[in-house]
């Protein structure tokens, strides 16, 4: 699980954001404190219908894999929905922000914490270069740069590039996969909408070997007026389990149940002659 991958990510490698000397004046940073919550649907591209309606520019191979997932789902399966078994969403899916999120902006890093399953992103803004080796993770390694787009002396946009992934990851709950090689590169531009200061926007461009071209999606988040932090602990609440290649339900009484009609019971090959 902890294998270290090379930081040079082959054909998908992109130039790091220009690492200007980090500003030290705390006054220059925007106040993004408080609590944000998803605006729009939980489809990865909230402007389009889910599943095939997303029109993700999938390669033929990725499209075939998604068709197989869709068939499984139609039968009641949960193929490619690892998050129901509490595996993190990772990038870019975590930016759907299923529940609520928190921004900690400091000069050297911005921390994004998502209360849905405790996912954390560190976006380094200390001018660092890409390391030679990146520890792979579901949310990846992010380097950002603050922008002052109006010349006011205050930063108003955060540009981010993220690499160094671990998987499997999907774009959303429908099970459209990112490539298993985990060489995704994701660029973002985060900013508060000037016309609607209570809206934060994230332009997300994903480059991935399961896509024929970069896919850009814009998501929005609403600032919450009355903050309510909720402990969303997947391990306490999940009703799903994957055994072998099959997903099952765990019933209210704690027993394994089929997730689809006529599903075979779990393989108990390790129980020898024990009574079932």
């Amino acid at each position: 699980m902890r294998a270290v991958v090379a930081g040079c990510l082959g054909a998908l490698a992109m130039a790091a954001p220009a690492a200007s000397s980090p500003a030290r004046d705390a006054d220059r940073y925007p106040d993004w404190s408080g609590q944000w919550t998803r605006a729009g649907s939980p489809n990865f591209d909230p402007s389009k219908p889910p599943g095939k309606g997303q029109q993700a520019p999938l390669t033929a191979e990725a499209q075939a894999a998604f068709d197989k997932v869709a068939t499984n789902r139609a039968q009641g399966g949960l193929e490619n929905s690892l998050s129901v078994t509490c595996v993190p969403n990772g990038m870019p899916r975590v930016m759907i922000d299923y529940e609520t999120s928190d921004f900690f902006v400091t000069p050297s890093a911005t921390y994004l914490w998502f209360d849905f399953s405790n996912e954390l992103r560190r976006i380094y803004t200390d001018g660092r270069k890409w390391p030679d080796k990146i520890e792979p993770s579901f949310t990846g390694y992010s380097i950002g740069e603050w922008k002052d787009t109006t010349g006011s002396g205050k930063f108003d946009a955060l540009e981010v590039e993220t690499r160094g992934f671990r998987g499997p990851r999907t774009y959303d709950g429908t099970g459209v996969s990112l490539h298993a090689d985990n060489q995704s590169v994701i660029k973002e531009r985060l900013y508060v909408d000037k016309a609607s200061p209570a809206l934060l926007r994230d332009e997300i461009t994903t480059t991935d070997h399961a896509l024929t071209r970069p896919w850009t999606v814009t998501r929005a988040y609403k600032r919450v007026d009355k903050i309510v932090w909720t402990e969303n602990l997947c391990a306490l609440d999940t009703s799903y389990v994957i055994l072998g290649d099959e997903n099952y339900f765990i019933g209210a009484d704690g027993y394994v149940m089929p997730a689809k009609k006529d599903q075979k019971p779990p393989d108990l090959r390790y129980f020898g002659g024990e009574k079932q």
Binding site: I242, L243, G244, D245, G251, Y255, V256, M257, P258, D262, Q263, K264, P265, P266, D267, L268, R269, Y270, F271, E274, K275, Q276
Partner: peptide, 26 residues
Amino acid sequence: AISADGFLKPTRPGQPAPDLKFFKSA
């Protein structure tokens, strides 16, 4: 326990297999 290949395993000698009462074929 969950084995490396994803199947259920006993955690103690003589542990009975899980009750699969909700599966017709079981």
